[in-house]
Design a protein around this nucleic acid. Structure first.
Lengths: 230, 230
DNA sequence: TTGTACTAAATTTTATACAATCTGAAACTA
DNA sequence: TAGTTTCAGATTGTATAAAATTTAGTACAA
């Protein structure tokens, strides 16, 4: 792990455990902490300048999110991402994203539809910028609008969690310029389908969207496998 | 809360935090701890005969499961179950149960199909026993066979979690004898559909199953509302 | 060289101590 | 009386200490 973890302290008040939780989660999702790497309490406590208690509590939450696995009396380590695991996540995510867009068809209001359209436009512009971080953020914002329109907090939470599980791969995926026009098109398709309240068309569009993502991630994983030979 | 929480200590080794976690979760799901009730650390620590540390770590996990909500510097309390919240959970569960049975159609093996049939028969016998606990257990076993057949660990975990969220209502639901024959029939329908690998028929059957459950739970909630006038 | 027993170091697990914050009631003011 | 202030007690948040366990290293015998 690179030795420059930094905590974001400028929130008005958050218990340290939550600050630590966010910090570690971020480090894991961005790949700064590699799968298999151990999370040692004293080490982390020193690095982040807090005591071990908040570290431990943060790890408990990461454990339940599936980002780290615990081995009793040995400690926690960053969860390995296996191919199987990823396929499982995507399988579930596909179903939930379909549900989300179907509900969005029913429940999205005019004002949100407008914002969704703006987000589509903004995403298009973002792809032209060639800056992967900007593109990724625009993508997240767009999908967020759809998911929030479901008005279903449980669904929102689950979809967000599942999406996060593969952030690091999506990042690589989004760098692939050849996909950009397709992504832009699919976003517009989704917007159209929701406007028309056409659930079937919407479902088909999201499925395609996720299928593409899955394919890209698998390709990505294949590359890593080849280069690291594990 | 009744003052006789008991921890299950006979496992070979589980960290105290996990024992506490299971104990508290059980207490919440069975209704022994009522929504809105505060979880005070010292109190719980004394009652369970451990220090505050494992209590705190258990609460962190309950928090992420949505069973308790945290108010900073005020502590945790058992999450209120609102109507909205229940509808949200059921909405997601419906989608995931459909996914599960569809995958089961693809992946269930001969031996599991046999066990599923046995579970159907056993459930039928259980309804005759009139013992709600026996019936509930038979029902859980049956659905477990289907969900496990998906081979998708993430899905298994999520469905189990969502099911648990309404254990206390299902319990009342299952006492309603007029529903029994319908439940038995629906179970056989599911088994048949999976045998035939007929995803559509299977999906329809589960949806009906959950719709019934939803209706019954809503009725139940209505009753409580009337009797407590809140 | 390999295998085993023993010891020391590292690490997690649990308990306790201290600090910060909140709550609620009594005292006080207008 | 209504509203504010103050303060004690309760409770959470954080840090540190003690206990239990695992890991790793070393010495010694086969």
């Amino acid at each position: 792990m690179s030795d420059n973890l930094q905590m974001n302290m400028d929130e008005e008040y958050l218990p340290l455990r939550d600050v630590v939780f966010n910090t570690l989660r971020q480090a894991i999702l961005t790949g700064e902490m590699k799968p298999g790497e151990r999370l040692m309490e004293i080490h982390l406590a020193n690095k982040l300048g807090v005591s071990r208690t908040p570290i431990r509590e943060a790890i408990r939450k990461l454990e339940l999110e599936g980002l780290v696995i615990m081995i009793p009396r040995r400690g926690a380590e960053v969860a390995q991402i296996t191919w199987k695991n990823l396929k499982d996540v995507l399988e579930v995510r596909r179903a939930l994203d379909v549900l989300a867009i179907e509900l969005a068809c029913e429940r999205m209001e005019r004002e949100e539809l407008d914002r969704l359209y703006q987000a589509c436009e903004y995403f298009k512009k973002a792809t032209e910028s060639q800056d992967a971080r900007v593109i990724a953020e625009a993508d997240v914002d767009l999908h967020d609008i759809i998911v929030k329109a479901t008005r279903n907090n449980r669904l929102i939470q689950l979809v967000n969690n599942l999406s996060e599980q593969m952030y690091r791969y999506r990042f690589e995926y989004i760098k692939d310029k050849t996909q950009h026009s397709r992504l832009v098109r699919e976003h517009y398709e989704m917007h159209e389908a929701i406007c028309a309240k056409d659930k079937e068309k919407a479902a088909i569009a999201v499925r395609k969207h996720i299928d593409n993502q899955e394919e890209a991630i698998i390709k990505q994983l294949q590359l890593e496998k080849d280069s690291y030979k594990n």
